[in-house]
């Protein structure tokens, strides 16, 4: 066989993979691009077929109308809930994970088994009882009603335990001999070595809490607790009456863009963490 022909064959095959892959990639991103462009068009240019790709003039009218809603309050709520949840998840999860990984105490195995078993309890089963409990506690309509159930999840405890098990035991033994008690060992030796685990759990917890939908939806009795995902749900056009539907497509696009841009920026900055964490947490969890 002519060596050149096999070489060209190889290039051809590579091309046959790369070109469709590239087209597929563009198509995958197109919806996001399209919604961003839509949000910037004057209302008249949104509903056209064939579509008008670029707006004749950039218009911020939809953004103006989105911001008539208490978007600021929603943002504060979302960030408040996500940040407090994340901090609590880190603190409680790391401490409990360490105890399950390294300390001996009565009932440890059965408690850890319970934590593992709770992976199987879908949150949806708890909607009704949690709703009733929040009523009893007088927490309905507060941010804590959204924070507390998410902190109770077993995920961070499990991940932290796995990570702590991978820290060489000699280090803690050495610290014990150097005179460190349990808390000193945990705070001075183990935690400084756990920055990767903390970032992982922190990012996952933040994303999860910021993006959650069903529970905040049930707890959102007023704008005072409403989160961005729930609040922006009001801009989904299909839920509106058919009158003036054009305006709602524009508003929806503007609202979506307002969240897409920061989400993508955060993702691009932290993409390594996102993907690596999913590999490790997915494999083990």
């Amino acid at each position: 066989m002519n060596p050149n022909s096999t070489r060209y064959g190889r290039y051809l095959i590579r091309l046959l993979i790369i070109v469709p892959g590239f087209i597929f990639t563009v198509l995958w991103f197109l919806p996001l691009l399209w919604i961003i462009l839509t949000s910037l068009k004057p209302t008249a240019e949104i509903l056209t077929n064939p579509p008008q790709w670029l707006p004749s003039a950039f218009s911020l009218e939809h953004y103006g109308r989105v911001l008539e809603k208490p978007v600021g309050q929603w943002t504060i709520n979302s960030l408040y809930i996500a940040i407090i949840s994340t901090i609590l998840t880190l603190v409680l999860g790391a401490a409990a994970g360490y105890a399950f990984a390294r300390l001996r105490f009565f009932g440890r195995d059965i408690l850890f088994w319970l934590v593992l078993a709770s992976f199987m309890m879908p949150f949806e089963v708890m909607l009704i009882p949690l709703y009733r409990m929040m009523g009893d506690f007088g927490l309905v309509g507060t941010r804590w009603s959204i924070i507390l159930p998410s902190v109770a999840g077993p995920f961070s405890v499990y991940l932290f335990r796995q990570f702590f098990l991978s820290i060489p035991r000699d280090l803690e033994d050495a610290a014990a001999i150097d005179g460190a008690g349990v808390w000193a060992r945990f705070v001075l030796v183990v935690l400084p070595l756990s920055v990767p685990a903390c970032t992982a759990v922190g990012i996952l917890a933040f994303a999860e809490n910021f993006n959650q939908y069903i529970w905040p939806l049930i707890m959102s009795t007023s704008d005072a607790v409403m989160t961005l995902p729930v609040g922006f749900g009001q801009f989904a056009p299909s839920l509106q009456g058919s009158t003036n539907i054009t305006q709602y497509y524009g508003m929806g696009a503007a609202a979506a863009t307002l969240l897409i841009i920061p989400s993508l920026i955060v993702f691009l900055i932290l993409q390594r963490f996102f993907m690596d964490n999913i590999i490790t947490s997915g494999m083990k969890g």
Binding site: P168, D170, L171, D173, A174, V189
Partner: peptide, 9 residues
Amino acid sequence: MVFQSYALY
């Protein structure tokens, strides 16, 4: 104590 892995922090 000196450990086999040295166990340096």
